[in-house]
Amino acid sequence: MVEGFSWSDEVFRVLREGEVKQVAYVPDAGHQKLIQLFIDKNDIKHVPLTSEQEGVALLGGAWLGGERGALLMQSSGVGNVINMLSVPYECRFPLLMIVTMRGEWAEFNPWQIPMGQAVETTLKAMGVIVLRAREERLIGETVHSASKLAFEGGRMVAVLISQRALGKKNWNK
């Protein structure tokens, strides 16, 4: 866990200022602090999912009811959302996804690599705009930009947070 102020604090602030009212997630170690910030503050609905595809549908329903949302997941979860992206595609629902990457930088688990390598291609094949944040200092402004593209531009947008920016997974904590 990053000490002191981190990208998680910044993204937390960006999403709140962006009037996000529902945050849906399947946990990832990279999202651990951000998720905890929402749980602790508890003034925005936080929705743990059993599968990432639920989040795509959930946030479509939220938008129908006038609320903005964000979906937090690991890169492996991108594989679970592909067909459900048909719904925001067809209805032009805004969709903001924040994806912490595995399988692309100093990955030690080979099982993470296939999906990690396919994330950008598959998202783009479904019409999602992909923004990459390769350094920690760029994560906040990238999410801010993605939020504008999603909610004001009316598009599906994914921010891929590089494993390089997150640091290696620590299995001893």
């Binding site: 929705v47 795509v56 959930l58 479509g60 329903g61 009811g65 609320e67 067809e90």
Partner: peptide, 22 residues
């Protein structure tokens, strides 16, 4: 009425997001 023509498996989730928003 909001009619889903696709997104199989997503009806309950769509309704949930709507119910939380309204």
């Amino acid at each position: 009425n909001f009619y889903l023509w696709g997104g199989m498996g997503g009806a309950v989730s769509t309704g949930l997001g709507l119910a939380l928003a309204q």
